[in-house]
Amino acid sequence: MNSIRIITILLTGFLYLLFQILVLKNLVLFGVAFCFLYVIYIILLPLDLKTIPVLLISFFLGLGVDLFYDTLGIHTASLLLIAFLRHRWLMVLVPTGGYEDDLQPSLLNMGFGWFLSYSIPLVLVYHILFFYIESLGTDLFITSLQKIIASVIFVLVMSIIVQLLFYRRRRGI
């Protein structure tokens, strides 16, 4: 892992953060579908990145998003959980022949079916935790459920579009 790769990874994260707080923050479809696209950034981090750097990245990314959303700690807590689960989930989903080391687990590299079975549970866990904490102390179960389902679908569709537009096959972005 050379320094150029590290810088690229951090820079991508920063771009995701900027895009999230300046554009996507104001985008809520039908009042229920939120677009937390930056979750995809954690999901698409290269495979050879160990859990500890992923946790640190997601802590600071989550804190950054929280700062601008006024939801102190909620994004961070949810993002940390999927950063923690990511490696284990990847180990479960090892394809025959194993992973190539520095690959991104993206749609183009791994195929459509694999990517969906990899990302849907993680994105779902993220949204369930986020909206659960967010609605603690209220009786908004049905609303939260609507928000969770709509947001997961929206984020996945957006992530597929973003990957097709901006990501390249094989390495790097």
Partner: peptide, 21 residues
């Protein structure tokens, strides 16, 4: 590290819950 960071996040949630944080 996960437990530690998650604890930090939860404590942030709790501390910001008061109306005048």
């Amino acid at each position: 590290l996960f437990v530690l960071l998650e604890a930090v996040a939860v404590s942030l949630i709790v501390s910001s819950n008061s109306q005048q944080g």
